[in-house]
Design a protein around this nucleic acid. Structure first.
Lengths: 124, 124
DNA sequence: GTAACATATCATAATATTGTGATATGAAAA
DNA sequence: TTTTCATATCACAATATTATGATATGTTAC
């Protein structure tokens, strides 16, 4: 009876209460694209790892080269390098080559903002 | 030569450039507790899944019962219930029993804020 | 050239997370 | 009290992510 243009069938659900129909329609209209949910999830996933958060929190203070990050966090170079690759791939940090060193920094202020709002939340 | 009060030894790194020593010390002083990084990562991890993001984006529009969420997202009940449990456990949504239904809502504004800043970021 | 160093990439075992079927709980209706 | 409905929990296979050892690349110093 309702729209069945989607994959799963949950036809056995809540159908009796047709009063919900309008709610469903209303919220569905305001949803973003499927792809955007995926992209957004990928983006937030980056913040979901303590090592990456540590790196980001350092870069929020000042730009740093890889070896400084390793030392400050007492992590081995492979670990840091790997996480930096992920951060780079997701456009969360950028870097600049200086001789044999690579100086990393945050790409934009959103990163710092999200970090700070999250910190506020858990500190309540 | 430096402080070796930490677990790993990266003594073979950057030691020649003692100019970095002060940088290390400076940023280390401004780091938060190890536990807080973990908590923060757990918190952000929640946003790192498209299904949960969808649920959150719906609840940012209006409070909803489980079956409305299922229908609106065309997901089966177990999946939604499971994700709601995770959201509850992380204090990101709360709920209110109304007869046999459970009406879910976001716990606070931080959740919506983070969602929106993230969306802004990926839309650039 | 070669040695030393800073960083990146590859491969992989250990671990964590996902969605979902089966099933349980608990409330209202019949 | 039996049935039906809304939701929750459990168990688990499929999949994803982690840190890290081994190794490669590229840069500077000698």
């Amino acid at each position: 009876m309702a729209d069945n243009n989607l994959e799963n069938n949950n036809d056995d659900m809540c159908e009796v209460f047709n009063s919900h129909e309008d709610v469903i329609e209303r919220v569905q209209k305001r949803m973003i694209e499927e792809d955007q949910y995926s992209n957004l999830a990928e983006f937030f996933k980056i913040f979901g790892n303590p090592t990456r958060l540590k790196i980001l929190s350092l870069l929020a203070i000042e730009d740093l080269c890889v070896c400084d990050i390793c030392e400050a966090l007492n992590l081995n170079q492979t670990t840091v390098s790997n996480q930096l690759r992920i951060l780079r791939a997701n456009n969360i940090v950028k870097y600049q080559k200086e001789g044999k060193m690579a100086r990393y920094s945050l790409t934009d202020l959103h990163i710092e903002m999200i970090y700070k709002v999250g910190l506020e939340h858990i500190l309540e």
